[in-house]
Design a protein around this nucleic acid. Structure first.
Length: 502
RNA sequence: GCGGGCGUAGCUCAGUGGUAGAGCGUCACGUUGCCAACGUGAAUGUCGUGAGUUCGAAUCUCAUCGCCCGCUCCA
């Protein structure tokens, strides 16, 4: 990350605090790593993101229904989902060069003839065969020749760093020093349900909202009269005990997800996968992430999780690097099959048309609300020039949020604080808030300063009551991005703004 | 978790052992008639937290918490 990118990120963080978008959690007690609070402007931004998503993905569609499932579920859910066993990363540290690795990706290869050890090396590899080849290739020429000569007479030992080699320590791929024993971190937060804090009372804070959808799939099917293909959508908090939260609100231990599980027949899964991948990408574009900073990246085959047939990431180029906003995956029938197996409940679907019974495939678009909020903050942050009272250009900081996402839609000012201007401005403000518009009234100080304050909050429109207003009942409306002003009848301002934030 | 950098007013930062500072912001009054830094005045800090050294610590030592960068990780 270059110096200027760091500085840009720092400016965005500073503005977010200064204007009340985002605060560190428990700041008065020194904070707590990986947790964040949203201030008055931040909560409006975040709520707008969720509202727009819910509107676009659920209410506007006839093939989607919503759900709000509990954060704490029966722990068996997480056994079925695989999180209890595999939602962890066994890690090892090098005692020599202090590097850290995922233990399941590190192999130690030992080749010996009788008691004479020819080769003992650590390598990064996907399986034993590759590990052996890589270790051999990395050895010096004399050793390579010896290995080739001796061939089958050699005894080989290849073991993974998290599985141990009969008491023999694993070796570092970088410096060949000994690695520490593997330590496991399950990333699920544990808690206890009820009065007894024993193993039978252990429960987990959900690491994803998706399982609440799968667990309710039958309930929804039986009660909503939905038929395939259809989706269930949910927005909610999830928790992951990240080893190392980083990059502001990007990787937090408590975060919010917007997830869809879209159920369909296996034969249509690939088509629906491509549909949702493109639709979700376009959603971000439509909300203002139009720059070249937004990408859609298909995963390579070897990058896929074991349950996924295909997967794509919507990525955004943050100041700290390109990172994932949302993942869209074809999860096949893996999840429902697992729940059928673990719960003993039938998860199949009967199609009256084709007389076919099957377990549906699932397409999962899974987005992070906080990551989206951060992307919109980064995208909105703009420094440009605006003229001062003498017409000389001055630097200006403005948050160019899409009007649908802007925390405040309309600010209302009296040009000066007298001659009845505050009264008319107040009436317009009351009408705005009364009709559900997020609005702000300000009569203090010079009007130019009030405009600039709203620029930092990202308010798209400012209405100003002036002397002429008192004669013909019109006001000026100023555009945040162009600074242009138009004159509108005072009683049309609210509907004019409402029109532009749909 | 390892290594490096950092933590002083709401924000950005100065202050290397002797009374806690600046700019911006905020608030009040005045001025102001459409785009920040006009005038006058005001508030704001256990110098991240806790211990230690010292006659005396923002400053030195240790611990701890948090932030940033790299490694690592990322369902």
């Amino acid at each position: 990350m270059s110096e200027t990118h760091e500085q840009l990120m720092e400016k965005i963080v500073a503005l977010s605090k200064r204007r009340g978008f985002i605060f560190q959690s428990s700041e008065i007690y020194g904070g707590i790593n990986g947790f964040w609070d949203y201030g008055p402007l931040g909560v409006e931004l975040k709520r707008n993101i969720k509202d727009v998503w819910w509107h676009d993905m659920v209410r506007r569609r006839n093939d989607m229904v919503g759900l709000d499932s509990a954060i704490i579920m029966n722990p068996k859910v997480w056994e079925a989902s695989g999180h209890v066993v595999s939602f962890n990363d066994p890690l090892v540290d090098c005692t020599g060069c202090r590097a850290r690795y995922r233990a399941d990706q590190i192999f130690t290869v030992v080749a010996a003839e009788a008691d004479n050890e020819l080769l003992a090396a650590g390598v990064e590899a996907n399986d034993e065969q590759h590990a052996r080849e890589q270790a051999t290739a990395a050895a010096n020429s004399k050793t390579r020749r010896r290995i080739k000569q001796r061939g089958d007479d050699l005894s080989w030992a290849v073991f993974r760093a998290d599985q141990g080699g009969d008491g023999r320590p694993a070796l570092c791929p970088n410096c060949n020093a000994e690695l520490t024993a593997a330590r496991k971190f399950n990333m699920m937060f544990k808690t206890f349900v009820g009065a007894m804090e024993d193993s039978s009372a252990v429960a987990y804070l959900r690491p994803e909202t998706a399982q609440g959808i799968f667990a309710n799939y039958k309930n929804v099917l039986d009660t909503s009269r939905m038929r395939l293909p259809f989706g269930i959508a949910q927005i909610g908090k999830s928790f992951r005990n990240e080893i190392n939260p980083r990059n502001y609100i990007f990787r937090s231990r408590e975060f919010e997800q917007m997830e869809i599980e879209f159920f369909c027949h296996a034969s249509g899964a690939d088509q629906w996968y491509r549909y949702w991948r493109d639709a979700r990408f376009q959603w971000y574009v439509d909300l203002g992430l139009t720059s070249s900073k937004l990408r859609l990246r298909d995963h390579d085959q070897d990058e896929l999780a074991h349950y996924a047939a295909s997967c794509a990431d919507v990525e955004y180029e943050f100041p700290f690097g390109v990172s994932e906003l949302e993942g869209v995956a074809n999860r096949t029938d893996y999840d429902l099959s697992r729940h059928q197996e673990f719960s003993g409940r039938d998860m199949s679907y009967y199609d009256d048309q084709t007389k076919e019974r099957f377990i549906p495939y699932v397409i999962e678009p899974s987005g992070g609300v906080d990551r989206a909020a951060l992307a919109f903050l980064c995208e909105a942050y703009t420094e440009d020039q605006a003229p001062d009272e003498h017409g000389n250009p001055q630097p200006r900081t403005v948050m160019k949020f899409h009007p649908r996402l802007a925390p405040i839609k309309l600010a209302v000012f009296p040009l000066v604080k007298r001659e009845g201007m505050p009264e008319l401005a107040q009436r317009i403000y009351d009408e705005a808030t009364g009709s559900g518009l997020s609005a702000f009234y300000d009569e203090k100080g010079a009007v130019g300063r009030r405009y600039r304050r709203q620029d930092e909050a990202g308010t798209p429109f400012c209405a100003t009551v002036d002397g002429q207003s008192l004669e013909d009942n019109t006001v000026t409306v100023r555009d945040r991005d162009t600074l242009e002003q138009i004159r509108l009848p005072a009683d049309e301002v609210v509907s004019w703004v409402a029109e532009r934030i749909r």
